[in-house]
């Protein structure tokens, strides 16, 4: 029996799969933010970045496939764990009080599912460009100067307050998800010590907050007219 089968068959092993794939997805969230923040450096910079990504098709698809595998594994392993956990308490308490569980921990399902919906919309919106007819080059009847005119696409996208609000709400819930996830990864992988159990949740919350500020800054800047 190989290691992967053993991991899948044990509860702790499944948690590792969730932890490792979560870490990889966190890496993407960080890298994606750094790419996105180039919005503040002007159209040329971010459009050149988009062109650069598209020019390296092979590594791009390798990364994409890796991300999809991580994303699917993260969800499938979590669902399997949730099923086990539900089965472990078939009869609910009539009255159950939570003593010290954090809101981020208790809302993992809600935040995770919202982020899932958001990812589907976000891909259809900006990657596949299915939801907005303006996101085409001018020759095809759209408003983009070139296929890599990401700058104007993002500005047009976020000028819609509904889309911006959903985006900010989603990255907010993603941050909540990560503030639990980042500190949990260390516990699940057995890296936590008595001392780190004190500062780790605080560090995780800070990282999550910075991610939220970074991501939310772009729609906020568009809505406020700072970016146009």
């Amino acid at each position: 029996m190989n290691l992967l089968t053993k991991l899948w068959r044990s509860s702790i092993g499944k948690k590792w799969l969730v932890a490792f794939t979560g870490l990889a997805l966190l890496g993407f969230v960080l890298a994606h933010l750094l790419g996105n923040l180039q919005m503040f450096s002007g159209a040329e910079k971010i459009n050149a970045y988009a062109e650069f990504l598209k020019a390296n098709e092979k590594p791009l698809w390798l990364a994409r496939i890796g991300l999809i595998v991580c994303f699917v594994t993260h969800i499938v392993a979590t669902l399997s764990l949730v099923r086990m956990n539900r089965a472990a308490r078939p009869d609910a308490y009539a009255l159950k009080r939570s003593v010290q569980a954090k809101i981020s921990t208790r809302s993992m399902a809600l935040s995770g599912l919202t982020v899932l919906c958001f990812v589907v919309f976000h891909l259809a919106h900006y990657t596949l460009r299915l939801t907005d007819s303006r996101f085409k080059v001018e020759a095809e009847g759209g408003l983009l100067k070139s296929a890599h005119d990401v700058y104007n696409m993002v500005i047009m996208g976020f000028q819609n307050p509904l889309i911006s609000s959903f985006y900010i709400l989603s990255v907010g819930l993603l941050s909540l998800h990560l503030s639990h996830g980042i500190s949990s990864v260390f516990q699940t992988l057995g890296l936590e010590t008595k001392r780190s159990s004190i500062w780790m949740p605080k560090a995780a919350a800070l990282i999550a907050l910075l991610l939220f500020a970074g991501y939310a800054s772009i729609p906020a800047a568009v809505l406020s007219g700072l970016l146009k």
């Binding site: 086990m84 308490r89 208790r106």
Partner: peptide, 11 residues
């Protein structure tokens, strides 16, 4: 035995 697993609720 059918126990669940830790989600770090810390309860």
């Amino acid at each position: 035995e059918g126990f669940g697993n830790c989600s770090n609720y810390l309860e």
